[in-house]
Structures are given as C-alpha cells and as structure tokens.
C-alpha cells in the first residue's frame, strides 16, 4: 500500500512556543521530498509529526486516510518508517539480524523482508555480528535496514547518510529509489546535497518554522543564487552541468557522466 502525506495549516512545537507556524504541505504517494534548511528551522519537527512523536497544536496531519492525531507512534509505524539521526538509541539485540527483525516482529509481519533489507544495504556479511561491534555509520545502516524491513508506505529519514562512504551512500540511494519506484513516499531531511540530488525529486526549504521554498529538485539544485542564499552550493554533478552547459540539465552523477561521454581530456597543467 502507498500513501500520500498531508499537513494542513499545522502548528507544532515542544511546549515553549511553536516551532512550526501554519505549515501546509502535500506530498503525493510515490513522491520523494527533501527537506532543507538551517539547524532549528523545523525540519525534524515536521518529520516527527508524521510518526506522532510531535503532536500538532493546531491543524491536521494525515498519512493516507489516517489522521495522525488519533494514533500512537506504534500504530503509525504500520504506514510510516522513521529512521532517526542517531542509531544508538534503539539497537539492543544480540545480532544485527535480530535487531533488523525487531520492527517487523512488533508489527506482526512475517519477517521475509529482513534478509532482503540486509542484502540491499550490504549487511548480510555482518548479520551475525553484535550491532555494537560495528562502527557508527554501519550501525546507522542497521537501523535503516530495520525500517526498510517493516515495509512501510512512507519513509521518513533524518540525515540518513551522515558519515557514510561513497559505497554506503550508493546502497542507500539504490534502496530508496527502488521503493520510490514501487510507490513508496519518501521524506528525507539532509544536509548532503549530493545525496539529495540522487534521491529526491522535490525540495522544500524550511526557514523559521515555515516553508520558504517548494520546488522541483532539479530546478533548485541548478539555481546557484537560491542555494547561495541558504549557504549552499550546487552538488558537483549539478555544478558541472551548469559550468559546462551540459545537455539534459544533469544533477545526478550518472546523468553527468552520460552528458560527458565522448569528451576529450587534456593532461593536467603542472
């Protein structure tokens, strides 16, 4: 099942005043959205609304036909898979495999997604290892696998690639793309624009608890002025596309490589 996500005039916060002011946002089923913005702009608050860890003080949040305000996080977990920024708050099983199986077991799912999720993220080799014996980025991959194995229709990922090497990032991108193609909705909070370029079709920029920009990712990632205003620059593939006026307006690495194929190279200047 796939679900869209909708926020209607939502206010939300943590007690002392609202962090989000009157936010409305519609994410269609199968769409992939990246949330950008400075620290404290409200990205994580928005993400936490979707799993019911923050409750709206006004307005309505829906996931498909469910109003989140009537449901506990463990109920929402059937539709929303949330990957936290820091992995160490949830790992507890003796092996990576058992930990990845925990979510599906809580939801009463058969667990046939566990081996697939491990394989997808390159964790099959360490499936029998203790999660705490793995380095921090690998532990984060384990939490991601745990959420993928739950088979939710909406994925919410908070900084999923921080500290990852190129290969791990590729694995996450590929896993995410496969799901988006099958209709899963993705909401990604990330500072990593190269990852955003690979994974998202739409970019929403938050500023001071409100939506400041809502654009196609391809347009935003090629708009140097708009990015500079946020203290950002185009990711390398998009920057090359702009500098060389490459055909097809590439923003992803593969697109850029395709546009450069057949180029002639010179020896480096000494």
């Amino acid at each position: 099942m796939t679900f869209g996500v909708r926020l209607e005039r939502v206010r939300a916060g943590y007690g002392q005043g609202d962090v989000l002011h009157d936010v409305s946002l519609d994410v269609a089923a199968g769409e992939s959205l990246a949330l950008l913005g400075a620290n404290g702009a409200g990205k994580t608050t928005l993400a936490r609304l979707l799993i019911g860890l923050v409750r709206p003080s006004a307005g309505r949040v829906t996931v498909g036909d469910w109003d989140v305000s009537g449901r506990r996080p463990d109920e929402l977990a059937r539709r929303v898979g949330y990957v936290f920024q820091h992995a160490d708050h949830q790992l507890f099983a003796r092996t990576v495999r058992d930990d990845v199986a925990f979510g599906p077991r809580c939801l009463g799912l058969p667990g046939d997604g566990v081996a697939a999720a491990l394989e997808e993220l390159g964790l099959s080799r360490v499936a029998g290892a203790h999660p705490y014996d793995l380095p921090a980025p690998a532990r984060k991959l384990v939490t991601l696998a745990g959420v993928l194995a739950m088979g939710a229709g909406v994925l919410v990922l908070d900084e999923p690639t921080a500290g990852f090497d190129h290969e791990s990032r590729e694995l996450v991108v590929a896993a995410l793309r496969r799901r988006i193609e099958s209709g899963v909705t993705a909401v990604v909070v990330s500072h990593d624009l190269a990852f955003v370029a690979e994974a998202a079709e739409r970019i929403v920029v938050m500023r001071e608890g409100a939506i400041a920009t809502d654009r196609r990712a391809r347009d935003m990632l090629r708009d140097e002025d708009a990015l500079h205003a946020l203290g950002l620059g185009p990711p390398p593939a998009a920057a090359l596309g702009l500098r060389l006026a490459l055909s097809g307006s590439p923003v992803r690495i593969a697109e850029c490589v395709a546009a450069l194929r057949g180029a002639r190279w010179t020896a480096p200047a000494v």
Binding site: D74, A77, Q90, G103, C106, G146
Partner: peptide, 28 residues
C-alpha cells in the same frame, strides 16, 4: 522510547506486554 515506538513497539497494554516491552527499552 521514541525510537522503539516508531519501530512498532506498543507501550502499555497487558501486564505481559509491559514486561516484554522492557527489554527493548532497558537494554539500549
């Protein structure tokens, strides 16, 4: 608590369910 609930762990319910919920909360 936030993380495990988001993985579908039910907090509350029967006494047996509460005891079962302790391991994923206390071990981490």
């Amino acid at each position: 608590l936030d993380a495990q609930q988001s993985r579908g762990l039910r907090i509350g319910g029967s006494a047996a369910a509460r005891v079962r919920a302790l391991v994923p909360l206390v071990l981490p």
